[in-house]
Design a binder for these strands. Sequence first.
DNA 1: GTAGGGTTAG
Length: 760
Amino acid sequence: MNTLLSLSRRRNSFNLLNHPLLLRKFSADADPSPGIIKPDSHASAEVRLLENLRKTPQHDWPSNETLSSLLASPSVSPQSFSQITRRLGSYSLALSFFNYLETTKSQSQESLSLVFQSVIEFAGSEPDSKEKLLRLYEIAKEKNIPLTVVATKLLIRWFSRMGMVDHSVLVYEGLDSSMRNTQVRNVVIDVLFRNKRVGDAFKVLDEMLCEGSVFRPNRITGEIVFHEVWRGRILKEEEIVELISRFSVHGVAPNCVWLTRFITHLCRNARVDVAWEILSDLMKNKAPLQAPSFNALLTVLGRNMEISRMNELVVKMDEMKIRPDVVTLGILINTLCKSRRVDEALGVFQEMCGKRTDDGGVVKADSIHFNTLIDGLCKVGRMKEAEEMLLKMKTEDGCAPTTVTYNCLIGGYCIAGQLETAKEVVSRMKEDGIKPNVVTLNTLIGGMCRHHGVNMAIGFFTDMQREGLKGNVVTYTTLITAYCSVGNIENAMGLFDQMLEAGCSPDAKLYYALISGLCQARRDQDAVRVVEKLKQSGFSLDLLAYNMLIGLFCDKNNGEKVYEMLTDMEEAKMKPDSITYNTLVSFFCKLKDFESVQKMMENMREDGLHPTVVTYGVIIEAYCSAGDLNEALKLFNDMGSRSKVSPNTVIYNILINAFCKVGNLGQAMSLKEGMKEKMVRPNVETYNALFKCLNEVQQKETVFKLMDEMNQSSCEANQTTVEILMERLTSSDDLIKLKQFMQGYSVAYPGEKSFAFPCL
DNA sequence: GTAGGGTTAG
C-alpha cells in the first residue's frame, strides 16, 4: 500500500484520488505490475471504461462499441464519471470526453454535470485558463448543463481571481435558487468582499440571515463576514452588534479570537452593557463560546469592582458548560482580594483548582495566583494565614515563591507596624536565595514613614544606598511626601535635588506630591521652580494642580503668576472649574477690584458654571468690608432669585456682622428673622454679633430673649459669648440670669428649664 | 497571524 500511495501521489494532483478507497478502486491503473493487486469485479466496468478511453484514439470513441456498452452499464455511477474524467489526466481529453458524452446523449444530466465539473477543474490550471473558463461557462449555458456546487464555487472564485468579478456575479445570479446554498453563498460573499462590493455582499448575506431563510449561515459564513468587518472597518459599532445578534439566531458566533477582541474593544470604550448583551444573546442561542470572551468582560467588571455581576456571569458560564480557565481564576481571585473579600477568593481558588478545561487540561494555579492571595491576606492583616500560604506554595509544583511573594509579606508586616518582623522577612528571603528589589526597599521605607517618622526612613535609605541599593522615583515620592506632611520643605526640596543629581527622572505623581506640598506650605518660589522643571521634562499640570497653584499665587498677591497660570490653562485647552473661579473671585475681592469680580461671574456663567454659595459669600463679604452694604444686600437678594442658591449661615453671619458693626440693629435683626423663615440655623457667631450690637440699656430684654433662643435651639455659647454678655450684664440680677443661662435655664421665665427644639 | 488575565512600593 505504501508503494501505491507514493506512486499515486506523484501521478495525481487531486488529493481526493490519494484516498485509500479510491486507490483500491483504481488499483489496476495505479499499479505498474497488474496481478499483484487485482481489480475487484465491482469496479471493473469503471476501470475498463477508463482503459478503453485511454487506448482508443479520441476520434474513434463514437464508433467504439465496447465504450458504448460500458457507458450503458448501470454499475457506472454518476460520481464515477467525474473521477474517470479526472483520471484522463488532461484538459483536452476531459473536454473531448464531455463532448463525446454530450453527443451520445447516453448519460443523465447529473453525470454530464459531474464530468463538466472535472473539465472546469482542469481548465483552472491551464495556461490560458481565463479564456477556457469563459468558454466553458458559455458552453454550460448553451447546452443547458446545470453546474454542480463544486463547479459553481470554482467558477465564482476563479473569475474573481482573474479580475472578472462581474462574471462571478453572473454565475451566481444564473443559478437556480435551490443551488444558491450556504456553501455557494459563502464563496460569493467572500468574493464580493474581496472586490470591495460590500453592499452586494451584505445583500446576499441578508437573505441568509433573515427569518425563515432556507440556506442559513454557518460557522464559515461567520468567519468570512466577521473577518471582513474587522479588517475593513466597514460597520459602525451598533451595526456590528446587530450583525452578531442576527448571526446568533442561527446559533453562529464569531470565532473566539474575533469575539474576544470585539468584547475588549467595547469594554475599553465603556460599553460594558453592550458586551454583556452580546454574550447573553449568544448564550441564549447556544452559539459556541469559550472562556476568553468571558474573561474580557470579567476583567472590566473586576476593574469596576462589580462583583455581583461577575458572579452572575460565572454562573451563566457554568450553566452553558463553558469552562473557566486559569485566566478566569486569576481575574476572580484578584478582584475578590482587591475588594478585601479574601475568604471568597480562597473559596473560588479551592473550587476551581483541578477543574477540567476546554482543551482537556486541568486548571492549575501558578505563583501569581498564590501571590494574589497572599497579598490579599496581608492587606487585611491575616499574617498567619499568609505565612501558611507561603509554605503551601513551596510544596506545589511550579509555584515557587518570588520576590513579589516576600514583598507582599513585608508589606503586610509594615501595615501592622511590625517593622522588625518585616526586616526579618528580608533575611528569610535572602536565605531562600531570593533577592530583595527596589519594591522591597520602598515597602519598608513606606512602613517606616508611617510608623516611625521620616527620619528613620531616611536613615534606612542612606544605609541601603551605602550597600549599593538605589532608590527610584517611588522611593523619593514617599520620602518627599513624608517631609512635606511634617512641613519640612527644605528637606523635601533637598531630596528633589538629590534625586535629579542621581539621574532619577521625576514622574507625574512625584510632581504632584511636591506641588501640593509646596502649595500647602505656601512656598511660591519653590513651586515656581518645580513647575518649570516639570514643564522642561515634558509633563503638564492637571486642573487640580492649576487650582492649587492659582490659590498659592493669589494668596501671595502674585497677579503676574496667576495670569501666567490662566494663560497656560487656556493653551492646554483646559477649562477652569468653579474652584478656579472662586479662587479668582476671592483674589479680586481682596483687591477690591469689583469690576473684575463681575467679569469673573460672567465668565463663569459663559463656561456653564454656576456661582456657588462660596462665590457669593466671598463677594458679599468683600462688599461689606468695603463698606458697600447696599451692594452686599443686593447680591444677597440676587442669590435666591437669580441663581437659586440658598444663603447659608455663613452668608447671614457676614451680613449680620456688617450691619451690627455700623450699628444698624434693625437690619441685623430682620436678617436673623429671615433665617427662621428660610430654615437656616443661626450659630454662636450669629448671636455673638447681635449681642455685641445690643449695648443700650433698653435693649436688655432683647438680649434675654436671644439668650433663651440660644438655649432652646441648643446653640452652645463660647468664650466670646460669655465675654460680651459679662460686659452688658453687670447688675447682680443680671449676673444671676447669666448663670441661669449658662446652666441651660430660661432667663425670661426663671426656674424653667429650656427645651431644645430640634426643628431650629 | 489573530484574542483574554492575574502579583508588590508612592
